[in-house]
Write a protein that binds this DNA or RNA. Structure first.
Length: 885
RNA sequence: GGGCGGUUAGCUCAGCGGUAGAGCGUCGGUUUUACAAGCCGAGGGCCGCAGGUUCGACCCCUGCACCGCCCACCA
């Protein structure tokens, strides 16, 4: 514990964050114990890419679960939050290949082994950047268990899963039309393709019917693929083309006859109703081709260039250049019938944004339906809950229509596919370790050149990180995990696949709750991107406003499932909040000695009891909010309570008790602060630890201090109403004096007159409360005296107000500006009248009185009564104001 | 084409059957020994539009409009 005079006047986050961030890790406060008797709470961190640097998306997605973890830890859970990083095949390739290119090298030039050596070297050097940044966020991760998706243990898990699925027939190899990115030079799965609507053209091309003068016009958005056409399809019921059945058409430019087939999938209403079929370059055509036994001619290669098969005129051209040339040639031949504008969706690579090319090749696939079925059930029957629940619908939608998953990638950085091919007999062997020779013919083997989709390994994260395939203590103790916090953009990529793999290999769901956070946008609701230049860098924000302010901002904006618009102003606001906490704490600490006084029940003031009642209410509400992952609600609760109840009312009230030397008020102040710090700690870990350590009798660390539980009998709503009445008198007095421009330093006399007995809700009969709290009212409202009388004195130096059952008279030095005062009273009356009228109308409605719940009717009745009393008093005041003027 | 979200104060957002809320911004006052990153006070809203249900609708239902996402093999 440091001496308290070290608390500076303003909160300076930097040294505090450095000190406690290090302390928590040195003390191993976040290291989980698989043998702990406490209830467990576990999570795995969505592993950021090793290439990554921390962005706001990370900050949000890591701050929110950290709040939950810290809360659970303080509530006595044995918490494990396991960190790690992802090898991110394509991202690393892009980085390494770029640096190779700068040296005039390429991955082909240096070869696989050298490439991997360079990649590992790079990983060792830069892979720690993001983890270092993560620590600054204050995320309470167990770094003793940090993992990497390509570390030896995890690699074993990946191989094990591949081999098992292969042996079960759930992984297979096939010659299939897949998506290939010519830039990244690898194939991709369906969900790695982003469809964007582009303004394109629809070219109508004439194909001659073989052996006749007739011709057929087809429409296409990709004329260059016609070079690979191997058929022409029409609808079987289309009368226009009935006579073409069984005939052939001649493919222009290639001068090659191709058959006419009929298929119900042809839309008669689109284009001309006749469609060219290019089985090697279009997914629909691929299926049509298979069904009708059409040839597959590859005219575009994996780099997006035309092949020899495209003909000497086109071979070697880029696909887009070829398109222009095909159109030009067709036009010259008079075969281009017309060209229309046509918007259509074009697939783009999700990494590099280039246009995807359908590509026919041998690839590995996961037969996904059997895995998906069980994963669907797990969400249907509630073993897994999405928060907010409507994301389950998105999940189901995808899972019901799921396609087999292409998992091979033509890359080197990643998990190499554990498959070997015999050079002599075409035998394929799949095994954990390289077999010595072909088990059928004894021939030499070559390992598959490809690596696995990065998401294939990510899918195993929740159990692969805990030691699987070994049955470890960690696996036993911490699987299934409790919560997965992630963005909606990777529900398909990651969440769904973790569920499938977890169920398949552990027989249990990988996590119980999936919290879906929104996207962090800028103030104008634009996505943050480098090209827009609207990135808000979390580290910069931490330097500027402090980690706690950043965390609190993210929490306060985190409405489940909603995107959030981040603003620096907001962060500055929460920086001010941190400072407010700091200063309130300074005040409390200043009034404390070396030890904390005991609360004596009989010495508790109204304000003391009130703040304890409020504390009890907030504690319960906070638990409820966090249980439902309503971070914004929890943050609001705390902000409002700390600033506007504890600071604005309680500390100000407590000063009265402190001046009187009340030990119990000091005790309540200290206890209140202690509780507030603990309630706030999950949101603002650093500042709360720093202050808490200054409290007499503090424990080792607030991270493991007990989360507050409301004291028995603290909540007292009747007492809160008493306090509300005191507050109403204070507020009315402040208002009247401000509006009459009475100097704040002028101590005025206040005379209170309690009205006749009225409805209970007006607080009638509570004069005693205000009377006994006279000192409090005087202090808070800046009064010289507070007197109680039968009637208010008259005169131009008496300003009048109404608070609950009281008429208030403020005796001031300077006469009031009657005109202005009259205006003020009139405005108040108008407001009250409008409300009274609305309520009266409601009460005059017999249906309302008969059908609305009795309590609602009663509430309206008493409110109306209250208003009429108020109106009467205001009316009298107004009359008197009008008199002498 | 299917699905999901949004539309509330100048801005960013809560609320979701019973008297319209917060933060920031605006306006006025204020250096009262925790805090001017503060304190005190004020102003500001036909809760997207049109119907319906209800004693009562920002809230529930049905349409519509606009904005934003996701999915999808009309070439």
């Amino acid at each position: 514990m440091m001496p308290k005079d070290e608390l500076s006047k303003a909160y300076d986050p930097k040294p505090v964050e450095e000190k406690w961030g290090k302390f928590w890790l040195d003390e191993g406060l976040f290291v989980a114990d698989p043998h702990s008797p406490k209830p467990k709470f576990s999570m795995v961190l969505p592993p950021p890419n090793v290439t990554g640097i921390l962005h706001m998306g990370h900050a949000l997605c890591f701050t929110l679960p950290d709040i939950i973890t810290r809360w659970k830890r303080m509530r006595g859970h044995n918490c494990l939050w396991l960190p790690g990083t992802d090898h991110a095949s394509i991202a690393v390739h892009n980085v390494i290949e770029k640096s190779l290119a700068e040296k005039g090298l390429s991955r082909e030039k240096i070869g696989r082994d050298e490439f991997l050596r360079v990649a590992w070297e790079w990983k060792e050097k830069y892979g720690g950047v993001i983890t270092g940044q993560l620590k600054r966020l204050g995320a309470s991760l167990d770094w003793s268990r940090e993992r990497f998706t390509m570390d030896p243990g995890f690699t074993r898990a990946v191989k094990q899963v591949f081999v098992s699925l292969y042996e079960e027939g759930l992984i297979y190899r096939d010659y299939f039309l897949v998506n290939r990115c010519p830039h990244c030079r690898t194939v991709l799965s369906d969900i790695e393709i982003e469809h964007k609507d582009l303004r394109g053209k629809l070219w109508h091309i004439r194909y001659a019917v073989e052996g006749s003068d007739e011709s057929v016009v087809v429409a296409t958005t990709r004329p260059e693929t016609m070079l690979g056409d191997t058929g022409l399809a029409v609808h079987p019921d289309d009368g226009r083309y009935a006579h073409l059945r069984g005939r052939r058409v001649v493919l222009p430019l290639q001068n090659k006859p191709i058959p006419v087939v009929t298929d119900e999938r042809v839309e008669r209403d689109f284009g001309t109703g006749a469609v060219k079929v290019t089985p090697a370059h279009d997914p629909v055509d691929f299926e049509l081709g298979k069904k009708h036994g059409l040839e597959q001619v590859i005219v575009i290669d994996g780099s997006g260039r035309m092949t020899e098969a495209a003909g000497p005129e086109f071979a070697g051209l880029d696909r887009f250049a070829a398109r222009a040339k095909v159109v030009e040639r067709l036009s010259a031949l008079g075969l281009l019938v017309k060209v229309e504008d046509h918007d259509h969706a074009v697939g783009h690579c999700y990494r590099c944004k280039n246009v995807i090319e359908p590509h026919l090749s041998w690839q590995w696939f996961v037969r996904i339906k059997p895995l998906a079925d069980e994963a669907i059930r797990a969400v249907e029957d509630g073993r897994i809950e999405f928060v907010p629940a409507n994301w389950a619908k998105t999940y189901f939608e995808w899972m019901y229509n799921i396609h087999d998953w292409c998992i091979s990638r033509q890359l080197w950085w990643g998990h190499r596919i554990p498959a070997w091919y015999c050079r002599d007999c075409a035998r394929t062997m799949v095994a954990m370790e390289a077999p010595a020779k072909c088990d059928r013919c004894g021939g030499a083997l070559d390992q598959d050149e490809d690596v696995l989709d990065t998401w294939f390994s990510s899918a195993l994260w929740p159990f692969g990180t805990l030691g699987w395939p070994d049955e470890t203590e960690d696996l036993e103790a911490f699987y299934p995990t409790d919560l997965m916090s992630t963005g909606f953009d990777i529900i398909f990529f990651w969440v769904a696949r973790m569920i499938m793999m977890g169920l398949k290999f552990r027989g249990r769901v990988p996590f119980r709750h999936v919290f879906i956070n929104g996207l962090v946008r800028d103030l104008k609701r634009r996505k943050m991107s480098k090209s827009e230049g609207n990135i808000i860098d979390p580290l910069e924000m931490i330097d500027k406003y402090g980690t706690d302010a950043l965390r609190f901002t993210l929490a306060a904006l985190a409405v489940p499932g909603m995107d959030l618009a981040l603003s620096e102003e907001r962060m500055a606001g929460y920086q001010a909040f941190a400072n407010k906490i700091w200063n309130a704490s300074r005040f409390v600490l200043m009034n404390l000695g070396e030890d904390r006084p005991e609360v004596r029940e009989d010495e508790l003031t109204l304000a003391d009891r009130w703040i304890r009642s409020r504390l009890a209410a907030v504690t319960d509400a906070l638990d409820a909010s966090l249980t439902q992952y309503k971070f914004y609600e929890a943050a609001d609760l705390l902000y409002h309570f700390v600033w506007h109840e504890f600071c604005d009312w309680y500390i100000e009230s407590a000063k009265v008790g402190l001046r009187a030397g009340n030990r119990t008020t000091r005790a309540v102040l200290a206890d209140g602060l202690d509780r507030i710090l603990r309630l706030l700690h999950p949101f603002m870990p650093f500042i709360t630890e720093e202050i808490w350590q200054h409290l007499p009798g503090a424990g080792k660390s607030i991270t493991v201090a007990a989360f507050p539980v409301a004291g028995p009998g603290w909540r007292d709503e009747a007492l809160e109403r008493d306090m509300a009445l005191v507050q109403a008198v204070v507020e009315e007095t402040r208002k009247v004096r401000t509006e009459n421009k009475v100097a704040p330093r002028e101590k005025i006399r206040l005379i209170a007159v309690e009205g006749p007995a009225q409805a209970p809700s007006t607080g009638s009969g509570k004069a005693a409360v205000v009377r006994s709290e006279a000192e409090l009212v005087k202090a808070l409202a800046g009064l010289s005296t507070l007197e109680f009388a039968e009637a208010l004195p008259e005169g131009e130096r008496v300003l009048k107000g109404v608070a609950g059952p009281f008429e208030l008279g403020l005796v001031v030095e300077k006469p009031a500006d009657l005109g202005q005062e009259r205006e003020r009273v009139q405005k108040e009356m108008a407001k009250a009248e409008a409300e009274a009228e609305r309520i009266a109308r409601k009460l005059e409605n017999p249906d309302f009185v008969a059908k609305a719940p009795a309590a609602v009717v009663a509430e309206n009745r008493s409110r109306l009564e209250e208003l009429s009393v108020r109106l009467a008093k205001l009316g009298q005041n107004l009359a008197k104001l009008s008199g002498p003027a």
